[in-house]
C-alpha cells in the first residue's frame, strides 16, 4: 500500500534522504558485523599470530588447528553441552507453549470463580524481577535435591506469565461460534482446545516458541546458579568456564566461541521472520 503511494508521487526527483540513508547504513552494517567477522577470522589464526602485536585482521596462514585442539579436548565434550542446552530449551518450549495457549484460552473464553484475582496475580508476577525470586528458587531446588539436574531448569518454568497474557490477547479473537459448533458436535473441552484453539493460535505458537527457545538457549545467570556440576552445564556457562580456564590461549577460546555461538545463529537467521514478529508484537526482552 505504502509502496504504491510512493511510486505514485509525481516528481521523480532524487530522494536525498534515501541517499543519505544508504551512505550511513552501509558503514553502520559493516561496523555492526565487525565483532563477528573478527572473531571468526581470528579463530583461524595460529597461536603465534594471535599473540603478535599489533593484531592482524585477516589470518596470514589460515589453519584449522584451533578447532582440532578443541574437538580433541577430553575436558570439553561439546556434544554433551549441546545436548544439555537442547534438552532444556526444547522442553521449555513445549511446556510453555502448552500452558500459555491452554490458560490464555481459558482466561479469554471462560468464566469461573476467582478468575480476576488469579489473572491479576499473573500480571503482577511479570513486574517482579527474576533476581528477587532467584535466591528462594535456589533454596527450594536445594531442598528438593534438584540442583545439578537438568529438570531443575524445566520444572520451575512450566508456566510463563507473559505467555499466558500474550495468548489470551490472541485467543480473544477466536470466534465463539467455532467453539460452540464443536460443542454441539459433541467434542470434549480438551478436544476443542487441541484441535480448534491450537489451530487458531498457530502464528502465536510459532512466534512465542522461537522467543522461548532463544531465551532459554542463551540464558546464563539462572543456569549458572543451578548447574554447578560441569557435565550438567549448558553452552553459555561452559563457554565462560573454558574462556576463564584458558584465558591466555585466545586462539582456542575464540574458536570455542565460534562453535558455541554460530551454529544456532544460522537457525535464528532462518526463523528471523518469527522472531522479528515476536519482538515487535511484544517488546519482549
Amino acid at each position: 500500500m505504502s509502496t504504491l503511494a510512493r511510486t505514485a508521487q509525481p516528481k521523480p526527483r532524487i530522494a536525498w534522504g534515501r541517499v543519505l540513508a544508504y551512505t550511513i547504513l552501509i558503514p553502520a552494517a559493516l561496523v555492526a558485523m565487525t565483532p563477528f567477522v573478527w572473531m571468526i577470522l581470528s579463530s583461524f589464526k595460529t597461536a603465534a599470530e594471535i599473540h603478535r602485536m599489533p593484531p592482524t585482521f585477516f589470518p596470514e596462514m589460515p589453519t584449522l588447528d584451533n578447532y582440532r585442539t578443541i574437538f580433541q579436548d577430553k575436558d570439553l565434550p561439546l556434544a554433551v553441552f549441546y545436548k544439555n542446552s537442547a534438552i532444556i530449551a526444547v522442553a521449555n518450549v513445549v511446556q510453555v507453549l502448552f500452558t500459555s495457549s491452554l490458560f490464555g484460552y481459558i482466561f479469554a473464553k471462560f468464566e469461573f470463580r476467582g478468575k480476576q484475582p488469579i489473572f491479576w496475580f499473573i500480571l503482577a508476577t511479570m513486574m517482579i524481577p527474576m533476581q528477587v525470586t532467584m535466591i528462594p528458587g535456589y533454596l527450594i531446588l536445594t531442598k528438593l535435591h534438584l540442583l545439578n539436574k537438568l529438570i531443575a531448569l524445566i520444572i520451575p518454568s512450566a508456566i510463563d506469565a507473559f505467555g499466558i497474557f500474550l495468548f489470551r490477547q490472541f485467543a480473544l479473537s477466536i470466534p465463539r461460534e467455532l467453539i460452540e459448533a464443536a460443542r454441539i458436535d459433541g467434542a470434549s473441552e480438551f478436544r476443542i482446545y487441541r484441535s480448534i484453539v491450537l489451530h487458531q493460535l498457530k502464528p502465536a505458537l510459532a512466534t512465542f516458541g522461537m522467543l522461548t527457545f532463544m531465551f532459554n538457549w542463551n540464558a546464563y545467570l539462572w543456569p549458572l546458579i543451578v548447574l554447578t556440576e560441569k557435565s550438567k552445564r549448558t553452552l553459555p556457562i561452559i563457554l565462560v568456564w573454558y574462556t576463564t580456564k584458558n584465558s591466555v590461549q585466545e586462539h582456542l577460546t575464540l574458536a570455542a566461541s565460534v562453535l558455541v555461538v554460530l551454529p544456532i545463529l544460522v537457525v535464528f537467521l532462518f526463523s528471523q521472520k518469527w522472531i522479528v514478529r515476536g519482538i515487535t508484537l511484544t517488546g519482549i526482552k
Partner: peptide
C-alpha cells in the same frame, strides 16, 4: 538483528 539473538556471553567474549 543478529546481535540480538547472539548469546550475551558470546557478545561479552567478542
Amino acid at each position: 538483528f543478529l546481535p540480538i539473538v547472539t548469546a550475551s556471553v558470546g557478545v561479552a567474549i567478542m
